[in-house]
């Protein structure tokens, strides 16, 4: 058995986790989801390196305590080194290097988006037909879809990941948030639009599906966002139209918008699987929690005879369990970093 400590500070979330064998999550703590202030004090802006500094040490201690793991029992320390906000990444990387040096443990540098791409393996229970290390779900076409990223990968295995496409403008999750803003629905937009869409008619409003040509696996959601804006206010107008919409109109628009995003995501993911000749599809990232995306991907994969592994809901948003899991795979292949590891923005 290998036991890996994972550390994630690439953007807003501070997270620490302990994962056994790249699959069994012993502890996965995300600062925004637990009340550290009550125990450790301190109030800082959410988006700040200082927030990561204040939260990270107590989170690591708490994760080790919950996992019942002593530092000497760890096999390696895995940390998100890219991509992300440089000042935020530096906090996690510095902490990981310090602990690796102090405890004499190997250091593993993990690409945040690759960890999302392989996070579906966290849902594969031991003995469920997967190999001993859960490796049998690979090769797969992986859709990573979140507020900051929308990308397609071929994951031959967790140490052999090739990018097939990415967004050229807005990420899908960003489009959800901005459409929620246009419709005056508040933040975070993804869950709100998803909920409103459930009572709406997805065929009511005709919205564009931007495919960027028959062969492209890239995405573009900027035009869809603008189409929703013009639908609300009139072509070439950016305000004044929201009052004319009834709650039912907004439900229909949420459903029509979600369907437009989901149609593109599903079509390109299936195209990626077909092009790579793989029979398995995985999906990770915050938007992977969207109910319409999950349902449509599931239906389509069944129809095409493909196996779908969606990432378990609790590992869709940014978390350190996926960093530890990805770190495990790199560790067992001997892909180690050294103490000169530097954080990289992109």
């Amino acid at each position: 058995m290998t036991l890996v400590l994972g550390i994630e500070t690439s953007c807003d979330e501070t997270s620490a986790a302990v994962v056994a064998d790249g699959r069994e999550v012993r502890a996965n703590l995300i600062a925004s989801q637990i009340d550290l202030h009550a125990r450790y004090g301190g109030v800082v802006p959410e988006i700040a390196s200082r927030a990561h500094i204040e939260r990270l040490d107590p989170l690591i201690c708490e994760a080790l305590r919950l996992a019942g793991a002593a530092p000497e029992e760890l096999d390696a320390i895995a940390v998100t080194a890219r991509p992300g906000l440089i000042g935020a990444l530096l906090i996690g990387v510095t902490a990981a290097k310090t602990l690796a040096w102090a405890w004499g443990k190997p250091l593993i540098d993990v690409n945040h988006i690759h960890a999302h791409a392989t996070s579906a393996a966290l849902g594969i229970a031991a003995g469920s037909g997967g190999g001993a290390d859960g490796a049998s779900i690979w090769p797969a076409a992986a859709l990573v879809v979140s507020g900051g990223h929308t990308s397609l990968f071929l994951v031959r295995d967790p140490c052999d990941i090739v990018m097939l496409g990415r967004t050229r403008d807005d990420a899908a999750g960003e489009a959800f948030d901005k459409v929620a803003m246009i419709l005056g629905l508040g933040f975070p937009g993804g869950p709100i639009v998803d909920r409103r869409a459930k009572s709406g008619d997805a065929t009511r409003v005709s919205l564009p599906r931007t495919m960027l040509g028959p062969d492209s696996l890239d995405f573009s959601f900027s035009g869809l966002k603008t189409a929703v804006l013009y639908h609300v206010h009139g072509a070439g107008r950016t305000r004044g139209g929201l009052e004319r919409l009834s709650p039912g109109d907004i439900d229909d628009l949420c459903a029509s918008f979600s369907a437009a995003v989901v149609d593109v995501l599903v079509a390109k993911t299936l195209k990626a699987a077909e092009r790579c000749g793989v029979r398995t599809v995985v999906v990770g990232g915050g938007v992977a929690a969207n109910s319409m995306l999950r349902a449509r991907l599931s239906e389509t994969c069944v129809r095409r005879g493909l196996t779908l592994h969606p990432t378990p809901m609790q590992f869709c948003t940014d978390n350190a369990a996926m960093i530890a899991a990805q770190g495990h795979h790199q560790f067992v292949r001997g892909r180690l970093a050294d103490l000169s590891l530097a954080a990289e923005a992109s």
Partner: peptide, 15 residues
């Protein structure tokens, strides 16, 4: 150039 996209969520992109 394909890597130039919206930094709304990640806050800063670098090229």
């Amino acid at each position: 150039e394909g890597g130039v996209n919206s930094p709304t969520f990640v806050l800063v992109n670098e090229y």
